[in-house]
Design a protein around this nucleic acid. Structure first.
Lengths: 246, 246
DNA sequence: CAGTGGTCTAGACCACCGG
DNA sequence: CGGTGGTCTAGACCACTGT
């Protein structure tokens, strides 16, 4: 990534600038709680207008890299705040962020009629449409982390093969590359649950052990429900992170 | 709230416009998944520039009221997505959002030297500074929901009296009104825990019952740690909501 | 094609902060 | 006071969508 903005690059200038600044932060060139150059200085430095500068800065603020103080300047966030969290991630991405190697063991994969309760969560008509059902034991560094059950709505007549899931690992990637469906937003709930005998034996814990239960409804860029996912995590191995703002 | 933008109002125009649009959405004037007027039409309608229009729309997008599709238009989000979540809220605000009357029973309140582990979370120097310690049983509609332990960093020499906590209920409000400290960002973790005998008796459950354990570090507008809060929620009464984006 | 949002410019004035 | 970010204008061209 060069340190100048290329007007012939097809990516937006504010995005190029954000990448440059992000690298300077990551490289320690701009230090935590120290100011970056002012907006007028950045105008000079990169030859773009202040509006464009501000777009780049706003992007980096949303990602947690920068913060502003009116009348004082724009500053680098302390490390802790730089982890972009409350971001929509797949299990695989989640594990990688935690420094663990994601893995899986597929227990079931087929096209089926979803039960009524799930059908409503998927916002599907009562008319018969089959969805992809997938049950997987999820691993982090080859150790069972959770048990995942998902119902995914595919374009009519389409399907995903077990082989694709095996090789790609992440359903999100398949959705994006094969069907151009991009997970954009999700509603998630978290609560505690107790392991059923089956869950317990799959996860290698005692029945009745506490679990962290996550239920998530994911929406595509077209605001249609893509999938409903339920994951039970081992209570002793998983912790959920969120970054809150207001 | 009138339906025109008042140039003499001290609040920004984009903010006034966002309020107007939000009310039209809430009032059902703009229907879910239906388009609102285009940016050029809004320019005409409200007599402000397109930049200002876009600032208002971006605000409403972040709040979950609107979504955009390039080349098609700007649309009203379905109801489900309109609940602004992953927002930094106090326990009191959280309960109100759930339609429950927040309450509390103060178990301890004093100024004290925080234990080493907490002191690090508060990013305090080893030098002696006392912080506000508060232990409260938290109620929703007068039923125990959780047990909250908090350590709050106050400006040197300042304190908060039990009477203030009793009457105001929310520490956040006191911090804001008395010290002009505004909770701006927070890092939160969630995991499962099992009730200790003391927690169990206070929450009215059996020892060893599953709990949802939340730990939160809250930052002020100056990026300093304001408080560290630990809450254990009754596993059978509390569910955590999050809205994820990317 | 016309209409939409996405990006960008070159200005302007304001509110806030520090010396 | 000068410098910072906050707001705002009136344009421009581009990329994408539908017909």
């Amino acid at each position: 990534m060069p340190d100048v903005i290329d007007p012939y690059d097809f990516t937006p200038r504010y995005y190029q600038l954000a990448s440059i600044l992000r690298e300077r932060i990551a490289g320690g060139e701009y230090q935590p709680n120290q100011p970056i150059p002012s907006e007028r200085q950045l105008e000079e430095l990169y030859g773009v207008s202040r509006t464009t500068i501000r777009q780049a800065i706003e992007l980096l603020m949303r990602q947690g890299y920068l913060y502003r103080e009116h009348g004082r300047g724009t500053f680098v966030s302390p490390q802790k705040l730089q982890k972009g969290i409350s971001e929509l991630t797949s299990f695989s991405e989640d594990m990688k962020q935690r420094g663990l190697e994601p893995g899986q063991q597929i227990l079931a994969i087929d096209m089926r009629q979803p039960p009524e309760k799930i059908r409503q969560r998927l916002e599907l008509e009562a008319s018969a449409q089959e969805v992809l059902y997938l049950e997987r034991l999820r691993l982090g560094d080859n150790i069972p982390m959770g048990l995942q059950t998902s119902y995914t709505v595919l374009p009519p007549g389409q399907t995903i093969t077990p082989a694709e899931v095996e090789t790609q690992g992440s359903i999100y990637r398949i959705l994006q590359e094969k069907f151009h469906l991009i997970p954009t937003e999700a509603d998630e709930t978290l609560e505690v649950a107790l392991a059923t005998p089956r869950e317990a034996s799959l996860l290698g814990i005692a029945p009745g052990s506490p679990l962290l239960l996550s239920e998530r409804t994911t929406y595509s860029q077209y605001r249609r429900v893509i999938e409903f996912v339920k994951i039970v995590y081992r209570g002793d191995r998983y912790r959920y992170f969120a970054k809150l703002t207001r």
